[in-house]
Amino acid sequence: MDRDTLISLYRQMLLIRVFEDRAAEMYAKAKIAGFLHLYNGQEAIAVGAVSALAPDDEIVVNYRDHGWALARGCTARAVMAELFGRATGTTGGRGGSMHLVDVKRHFWGGYAIVGGHLPLAVGLAVAAQYLKTGRVTLCSMGDGSTNIGTFHAALNWAKLWNVPIIFLVENNQYAMGTAYEVHSAVPMLTKAAGYDMYAEEVDGMDVLVVHEAVCRAAERARRGDGPVFLNAVTYRYRGHSMADPDVQRSKEEIAEWRRRDPITRFADEVLLKRELATPEELAAIRKSVEAEVEDAIEFADNSPEPPLESLYDYIYMQPVSHMQISGSLIRPPKLGGRVSPNGKHH
């Protein structure tokens, strides 16, 4: 890997980190609403994995998706604008934090029903296999999603039909607040073994380790050797979401994992140690990243809200001729359905 690539990995991870910190701030300031699941601590996985894939390989992830979107090349502006619910966001303010998407970049989206996206990812891989596109599908998920029915149905099917897919568990060791040993009966790799699936455990705090593991996995899948299962052990620094008081994890445990921070470690042990960059250069990168995120916030804040008349757009990709008299579409708003003064929910 050349210097520019390494610097680029560093910059991407730092961009995600700064982006998430500022997103937390914007959430606290009520610029962002709903749920906000931050990626702090897990940056090496998205950055390492995306750098190992071809630009047209398919990526499907869960709701902790800001890092993936940024790593895949979505602009900080588009992502922040989406968090702000603006027309300039990745889905024009439709999906919000948990449902970022950029199909042009083969980023098929964040999915917020735990385990729900695994069958979709297998389906994308089946399509690639059927259409012989040579594309590999990468499906990331949390450790918390490895107990639900769709996980097992998806692994079984993927193995059965030998489809080109990488199941990448971002094992941050907690399903929301529930620790791995409380939610899973067997070690992670045993789950893959149950489907006789090739599996590896990797250090999810090391971007290069993740990168190499995904390279190997993609190669396997691409040459027709079937699905691969990766267990990337990592840690999330913040609570599950902004609403999480994070009382279940000890301060010591968090501090311990922070010492293995993927960004500082990569800077210290790779870039500085190998003299690929000077501290001043890294400081300059940080400055440029901070400016980029500040610009994204400004952009988001100044972006318009989605136009009301777009509300019904894409209800169908193929509209229906009788839509105007449909009970479900145009009619209700015109006909009534008066809002009850008591209807406001508190």
Binding site: P119, G123, N156, W157
Partner: peptide
């Protein structure tokens, strides 16, 4: 033929449709 796993039959059907098939 598929496994008896309706969530996968439909979920994988959705994914494959997203990926260019008509399932």
């Amino acid at each position: 033929d598929t496994p008896i796993a309706e969530e996968a039959i439909i979920g994988i059907g959705i994914g494959a449709a997203m990926g260019g098939l008509r399932t």
